[in-house]
Design a binder for these strands. Structure first.
Length: 572
DNA sequence: GCCGTTTTCGGCCCGACTGTTTTCAGTCG
């Protein structure tokens, strides 16, 4: 089994850290880290790209040497350069650099002075008061290390975007209420609508920065003040979530918003563009010498650099700057483009509301249709329907549609893909539906090959329309099952099937990189909520944001079509 | 180690804060 991209990136990062501890050239270290980032962001496995004869040295930040190292990892599963450095430097030093406040130099100093080579050794030395004896460290550093070790031990995962919203919204209300605050925005991965958020980056425009950071650190949920100055403060909330706040002047707002929105790799690429023009870009503006030539708005900064505005959703340094330069940025799909929802549940299986209530809620959102997709018979734990139940539901929907004007309830079902690739209801019953959502709900443990064959065999059934939550992942709870999505997506495109982007904040399955890949191959994506309640239909915005991160335009999304065009597109 | 509007060598993103230092290195984002 060749290594996946995340594993390759992890080894490159580990190599970079250990080399840095050894005192290697810092630009070489950076080159390894850049390459790790590039590999981690690839839409396809590097192994698959190599198998297709692609030249990895054409990727940004990857030259002959690193292309060779990646090939070595794919072919042999290991990396000689990493083995060599791990023979010289204790591998545990890499873990020690994960402690905030400890970088390569300090870890090296602790190793040289006290022989500390693991988190456990670090903990013991801190508890015994030995850290403070090392030159460059004091009692305060020692206490910080102890506290950070505690935090690492109890560290949760990055928060789902929706959980981050629940923390951010009351906090932002507090900040916007402060005297002298004229604007306050959450930047960072939150603004980029990433599926998980590691911390909050808040940008504030205010006259008196010191007063703002003072009041911010006094917020009732603050458990610990990590640092506070006149322009910046960092706190940890009771929830364990970190929040950074920065204060800037209005003339710098655009530059600062850009800077704090990131992604870091996007910022670096843009700064290099500024440097190439003899300018300097920082959070205060774009400067020609000492003269600020842009900074009040993001548009102004991009404009001076010869680029159109790049939406935050695209700022991952995945080709958006080149696309902007060449005038081929996608016109991203918006929530208002969505004409209906193709995946929801009712009391007929594990939903909480009836068909009529769900339909009325969808109508209230301005939709023209709602697909009812209750579970099929094998999903006993989720109240799966019998064949009679589904037949009765079909009649119920026909009757309901006779009442509705300008709105259509679509007859569908979330059909289990059985272990052998069969669908969970007889073909003649499925043929009475408008379309189907077919999903894997069990046997996640099959081999990659078997799982892939299973799903593609299901697609061979002409009643198969949309593959539901294609990888089965649950963010922070369950890893995706092993499946060759590359093959699955090509198979779907060949057969006139579609993939779902499940908008549940815990799923967001497909991910952004796969959405972009689907777009590149002309495969349309259904963005669906999988709602189990009427409120659940409002999760659509998370799916649309994820679609935007995957560069999808309205036409790339199946359910931006009016009902007639939708049904035509889904006919096989 | 990578790369080219400074183009095959000589650069490589930039500033705030902390803790320790007494003028700044290290770390982080």
């Amino acid at each position: 089994m060749p290594l996946h991209n995340a594993e390759i990136a992890d080894r490159l990062n580990r190599l970079a850290a250990l080399l840095e501890i050894e005192g290697a050239n810092r630009f070489r270290v950076r080159a390894y880290r850049n390459a790790a980032g590039t590999v981690a962001g690839l839409p396809r496995d590097a192994a698959a790209m190599l198998a297709d004869g692609e030249d990895l040295s054409e990727l940004p930040g990857i030259g002959e040497d690193l292309a060779g190292k990646i090939a070595e990892m794919v072919e042999t599963g290991s990396l000689q350069a990493l083995d060599e450095v791990e023979a010289r430097v204790p591998p545990g030093l890499f873990e020690m650099t994960r402690v905030p406040g400890l970088g390569a130099r300090k870890v090296k100093a602790l190793y040289d002075a006290l022989g500390l080579d693991s988190l456990d050794a670090l903990r013991e030395a801190a508890d015994r008061g030995r850290i403070r004896q090392v030159p460059g460290f004091g009692a305060k550093s020692e206490a910080n290390i102890r506290r950070e070790l505690d935090r690492l031990e109890g560290e949760g995962d990055r928060l789902r975007l929706i959980d981050a919203e629940h923390i951010a919204e009351p906090l932002m209300a507090h900040i916007r209420d402060l005297d002298g605050v004229s604007r306050a925005t959450v930047a960072g991965s939150y603004r980029r609508r990433k599926e998980t958020v590691g911390d909050l980056d808040i940008l504030v425009v205010a006259e008196d920065g010191d007063a703002v950071t003072q009041a911010f650190t006094a917020y009732e949920e603050v458990a610990q003040i990590v640092g506070r100055g006149a322009t910046r403060a960092t706190v940890v909330l009771r929830s364990g979530f970190s929040v950074d706040l920065r204060v800037v002047a209005p003339e710098s707002h655009g530059a600062a918003l850009h800077y704090f929105t990131g992604a870091k790799s996007h910022n670096i690429a843009l700064r290099r563009r500024a440097v190439a023009r003899g300018w300097k870009l920082n959070e205060y503006g774009l400067f020609d010498g000492d003269t600020r030539i842009a900074g009040r708005t993001e548009e102004e900064v991009y404009g001076k650099l010869g680029l159109p505005f790049i939406p935050p959703l695209l700022r991952e340094n995945r080709g958006e700057i080149a696309a902007a330069d060449e005038g081929r940025l996608p016109s991203l799909a918006e929530l208002s483009d969505i004409r209906g929802d193709l995946h929801c549940h009712t009391t007929a299986s594990d939903g909480k509301f009836g068909i009529r209530e769900m339909a009325e809620a969808a109508r209230a959102l301005g939709y023209g249709y709602l697909g009812i997709t209750d579970h099929s018979r094998s999903q006993t734990v989720a109240g799966g329907m019998s064949t009679d139940d589904l037949a009765a539901q079909i009649d119920e929907i026909d009757a309901l549609n006779a009442e509705f004007a300008g709105f259509r309830v679509l007859k569908s079902c979330e059909v289990d893909i059985l272990e052998d690739g069969q669908l969970d209801f007889p073909d003649d019953l499925l043929a009475r539906l408008d379309y189907t959502v077919c999903s894997v709900h069990g046997r996640f443990d099959l081999s990659r090959e078997t799982q892939t064959e299973r799903v593609i065999r299901a697609m061979d059934n002409p009643n198969f329309t949309i593959l539901g939550h294609p990888t089965g992942r649950l963010i922070n709870r369950r890893a995706p099952f092993d499946i060759d999505l590359d093959r699955v997506m090509r198979a779907a495109a060949d057969r006139g099937c579609f993939l779902e982007l499940n908008a549940q904040p815990s799923r967001l399955d497909l991910d952004d990189a796969r959405c972009k890949m689907a777009r590149d191959m002309g495969l349309k994506i259904a963005v669906s909520t999988d709602a189990h309640t009427t409120d659940g239909l409002e999760m659509m915005r998370f799916g649309v944001a994820q679609a935007g991160r995957g560069w999808l335009e309205a036409d790339d999304i199946l359910n931006t079509r009016p009902v007639a065009a939708l049904l035509e597109a889904m006919a096989r």
